[in-house]
Amino acid sequence: MTLPLTPPRVRILLDNDTGIDDALALAYLAACPHVEIVAVTATPGNVDADQVAANNRALLALCGQPQVPVLIGAREPLRVPLVTTPETHGPQGVGYATLPDPGPADPQTGERDAVDYWIEAARANPGELTALLTAPLTNFAHALRREPRLPWLLRRVVIMGGAFYYQGNTTPTAEWNTHVDPHAAAEVYAAYTAAAEAGLDEEKLPIVCSLDTTERFEMQPALLTDLAAAAGCAEPEHVLAGDPEGQRSTASNPLVRYLSDALRFYFEFHRHYDQGYIAHVHDFFAAGIAAGTLEHRNRPATVAVETESPLLFGTTVADFRSLWGKPANARVVSWNDPETGFAELVERLGVLARRLEPAD
């Protein structure tokens, strides 16, 4: 896939469970002038849905987009209890980062159901909206139940989830988002199988960013030094493996300070699990595909999710050779370019951070 020099306008419905890498993805989308964030909906995952929504409202305000609607849909997975990840993303979902209280939700949108909002938006804008799903697929499964024509109504769907020829990050075979609500993921892929059988164009099948390729986006702490420089911070920003755990950023720029404090927690988490002082920023890569700014290649496949086996619960399986005799229901990313992607991230966020810097 070769990207145009100037990406066309993209209108995104984002469903997330913010989440450190979800927060990075949201800030990145806010930094893309060609991207309109139509709404951000909260799915329970890394933290509960209310905390997800609060994180989203606060981050959108920080990024200069407080007008974007933030809504809550499901509050639990379809059939299993919710399991959150304070050890991975911190008790509030954003590591050591702190933001001002975003205040109460907009009364015109805060009480609306996220799933209804998605369906109404898709019906009102057929073929125009891109769905970016960086959370468990609970809300999307509910939306497909209520409106089976969503695969035709949406312009594009991008999913961060699954692991195919790759180790899981929650069990030996299962990836986190899928493992939180495997029944929802199974319903989503089944809905796209039915849509494919009914003639859905292959270009409208979900693009799946699995661990096979998202873990290639391995952020090093030096990227925060580059970001602070791009943002025009008064002093260099250094996040070092030898720093005391929990050390806070003193960056002069509020966005750099927020991302640095969030990502420090993520670096420490990965080190605790013997992966080094790095951070896998899965959701940024998915956001770049949705925004049309990051190169990738993908392969059609028939994806299914295991929901019965205790040993393989939440495992995703991709049939790339039509051995099941079913049509492709997804396009699984097979290649990406992390070096170019990280350069894009620093450039976009640097411009946004400079714009947000308060005047002296």
Rank of each mutant, 00 (worst) to 15 (best):
M219I: 06
L133I: 13
I37C: 07
L129N: 08
V52T: 11
N139R: 11
G90F: 09
V188M: 12
A353N: 00
E357F: 02
W118E: 05
T130C: 11
G161T: 12
T138K: 03
V317T: 09
Y166C: 15
V333H: 02
W176Y: 14
A30H: 10
L29Y: 10
Y192D: 12
L259A: 06
L5K: 13
T171H: 08
G292A: 09
E215T: 12
L137Y: 10
V38F: 02
R11T: 01
Y273D: 01
Y266S: 06
L211R: 11
L26P: 08
L223I: 14
E203S: 11
A291G: 06
E76P: 00
T340P: 03
L224W: 03
D360S: 12
I289Q: 03
R79E: 11
H282A: 13
L259S: 07
V10L: 01
A353M: 00
D274K: 05
P126V: 07
A330N: 07
G45N: 04
Y166M: 15
H270M: 13
A290I: 01
Q220L: 15
R248V: 01
N336K: 05
N55Q: 07
T307C: 15
P104Q: 09
D201Y: 03
E87A: 14
A262Q: 13
E203G: 00
V180A: 07
G162F: 06
R75K: 15
R79G: 02
Y192I: 14
T170A: 14
A230G: 11
E268W: 05
T315W: 11
L82W: 13
T84V: 14
A291Y: 05
A131M: 09
P358E: 12
L356G: 14
A353V: 00
A131W: 04
E357K: 02
T130A: 07
A121K: 13
E268G: 01
P81R: 07
F313R: 08
F164S: 07
V70M: 03
E111M: 07
A53F: 05
P102F: 01
V256N: 06
L356M: 15
D274P: 00
A135T: 15
V239Y: 06
F285S: 03
E203L: 02
D21E: 12
T178W: 04
H34P: 06
A143Q: 10
K326S: 06
W335V: 11
A42R: 03
A185G: 07
T250F: 08
R155V: 08
R75F: 07
A30T: 11
A318Y: 09
G90H: 10
G276E: 05
E147H: 03
V157W: 05
T98V: 07
L259Q: 05
H179L: 10
D17C: 12
E237V: 15
T178I: 15
L349N: 04
G103M: 07
E76Y: 02
G292N: 11
P33W: 11
P136I: 06
H272N: 07
A234V: 13
A184H: 08
A30M: 12
L349F: 00
T85V: 00
N298M: 01
A131L: 13
L5Y: 04
